[in-house]
Simulated assay, not measured.
Amino acid sequence: MIARITLSSVTLPLKQAISDAKVLTGRQRPMTEVAFLFAEVRTTDGLDGLGFGYSKRAGGRAQYAHAAEVAHELIGEDPNDIGRLWTKLAWAGASVGRSGAATQAIAAIDVALWDLKAKRAGLPLAKLLGAYRDSVRCYDTSGGFLHEPVERVLDNAEAARAAGIGGVKIKVGHPSPAVDLARVRAVRDRLGDDVPLMVDANQQWDRPVATRVGRALEEFDLTWIEEPLDADDVDGHAALARSLDTPIASGEMLTSVAEHVRLLDAVDVIQPDAPRIGGITQFQRLAALAEHHHLTLAPHFAMEIHVHLAAAYPHEPWVEHFDWLHPLFNERLDIRDGRIHLSGRPGLGVTLSEQARAWTVAHTVIQKGPE
């Protein structure tokens, strides 16, 4: 039975301020930190599960507060009944909805329950879910942001390849499409034609610009164009996918399975984020739908979670590599030959570092009786 749930709000400072197209268009400020919600679930027989979610810029405190308000519902419950417990938590906070911060708060606890279940079985999470492979293709994003001059982007791309990462994604959506095209051309020339290359506009184009720039990008044989349009513009994504040879990818900003369902017939690559849509329980529901639509799966961010979920997807997926989270965990993922290889460690295979504990800004222990 579940005896205790410990929730921690952790603020991860970034080494430098990060800017993508949303900053250049004036819609957001540069990002300087990421807020994480960690959930640690302990059972009466002394087993522990670890899960996490996150928020960029705003929302971290809301996630933490909501989790602290509903987590007591699980004390005394059987941690193996993960689907039922997800529903119980969702109903506990139903008045604030079934997407956004409410379900993102549940996600951290849900991931912890899956980590716990895999540890109880003595298996990596991917094996518990039913892995199709022991490694997953990966691509780097952290070196391709728009605040970086193109020379640094080129150096970062080469460093990523040298570190064993398979593909490279760079940000586009600059106010001048000519700048985007010049940066893409420079990266393609440096990497050669055989290296998978993706671009990400972060929803900053309208339909005419996305069409014009998308056609200009065709010559670079991109693996995909990501978020060319507003995440809710399903019809626009579908029209763009029909008009271009380059695959269209989207989904990371959606915060429920229901929101993704409308996108399944509009894109070629679906990019759900388990912490954003409510955890592994919801991700598995969406993955089944995506497989039915024969979509490529490329989960967003949180590679420590997503490598397991991608390994359990029937079609060959991608996982996004970010080095931002390295200080939070004691372990590192095994990256070589263009792929992330599963470790033999049970569960997610990661434990919280002392640095993560030091960055904790709020902490709650939920259990029966005194702490």
Rank of each mutant, 00 (worst) to 15 (best):
D140T: 12
L348P: 02
S176W: 07
H292F: 13
L289K: 03
P317Q: 05
R207Y: 12
D245I: 13
V365S: 04
D334T: 12
V184M: 00
F220P: 02
A35N: 12
L342G: 08
V213I: 14
H292D: 12
A102Q: 13
V209M: 14
A290N: 06
R185Q: 14
K117A: 15
A21S: 15
V179R: 05
H66A: 14
R336C: 07
N80F: 13
E33V: 06
K127I: 13
Q203E: 15
A126R: 00
H147Y: 06
L146Y: 00
A238N: 05
R215H: 15
F145W: 13
R207L: 12
V307P: 01
L181Y: 02
G53L: 03
P346T: 08
R42N: 11
Q271F: 01
A112F: 05
D265E: 15
S256M: 05
G279F: 08
R212M: 14
A160I: 09
A108R: 02
D45V: 08
V234S: 00
D193E: 14
D268G: 11
W324L: 11
Q104R: 13
T44I: 11
A68G: 03
T6G: 00
W205A: 06
A71F: 03
L113K: 02
I5G: 04
T43A: 01
G344A: 15
S353D: 08
I305W: 00
C138A: 11
K169A: 10
W224E: 07
D233H: 00
P30H: 06
G59V: 10
A163P: 04
G369F: 08
A310H: 01
E291I: 10
L244Q: 06
Q16R: 14
P346W: 03
G46D: 11
G93D: 12
T364G: 00
D265H: 13
P275Q: 04
P30Y: 10
A160D: 12
A112W: 02
P13I: 08
A121Q: 10
T141N: 06
W359Q: 01
D115T: 01
V319R: 05
D233G: 02
D115H: 04
A186P: 03
N156P: 02
G338K: 03
H66G: 08
R285I: 12
G214E: 09
L348Y: 02
A312S: 08
E148F: 15
T43I: 00
A239V: 09
T141D: 08
M303A: 12
T43W: 07
T87P: 00
K127M: 13
L146S: 02
I280G: 00
Q63C: 14
R4E: 15
H300G: 07
G369H: 01
D115C: 04
D155L: 13
I248Y: 02
Y132M: 10
W205F: 15
L24V: 09
T11R: 15
D268A: 11
R242T: 13
D334R: 10
D273M: 04
F145S: 10
G144T: 10
R29V: 13
F38N: 03
L50Y: 07
S353R: 03
E219R: 10
A108T: 06
L181G: 02
V41G: 06
E227G: 02
R161F: 08
S343N: 09
T32N: 09
G278Y: 04
A157I: 03
P175M: 07
V41I: 09
L123Q: 15
H306W: 01
P79H: 07
S142G: 09
R262W: 13
G49K: 04
A163E: 14
G279T: 08
L50P: 03
V179Y: 05
V23H: 06
V361Y: 10
